[in-house]
Amino acid sequence: MIENRKGDWFEPRILGFLCNWCSYAAADLAGMSRMEYPPNIRCVRVMCSGRVEPSFVLEALREGYDGVLIAGCHPPSDCHYQSGNLKARRRYYLLRKLLRELGINPDRVRLEWASASEGQRFAEIVKDFTERLRRLGPSPLKVKRVGAE
């Protein structure tokens, strides 16, 4: 369902995958510091950004999310598991290529780094991503799905 509740305002839906040690902690810190960001994101906690399978991202887009955020610890070496973030980054580049080939704007998927102390940064990432997705409009997959129903 495309939500246009506030007039012409399109509210994108974002799914986030946050690594337990840095980005999930950053999101919690944003809360503890009572920073506001748009309520467009729903987050899934994983232990490490290296756990995120490209198929999770594709599945999210297929299910109708307008954007997917993957967030982990700063490279090169902040990852709690040494190099999961680097693996996430490699997969991310491949994924962008794949999306382009599928005719989906690769900017619908975003990889970011936020350390456990960067609550502010996390809030800003969500703000900025929401803004961009608003400009990109609803995901073409979602439109198809809605049309098919």
Partner: peptide
Amino acid sequence: KGCGTCSAACPSGAVRSRMFTEEQIL
């Protein structure tokens, strides 16, 4: 240490992160 990188990479879904299984996340 339980990072789950192996699960993410396994082509046959045989390596299962117990607390973050594929079914759970999907």
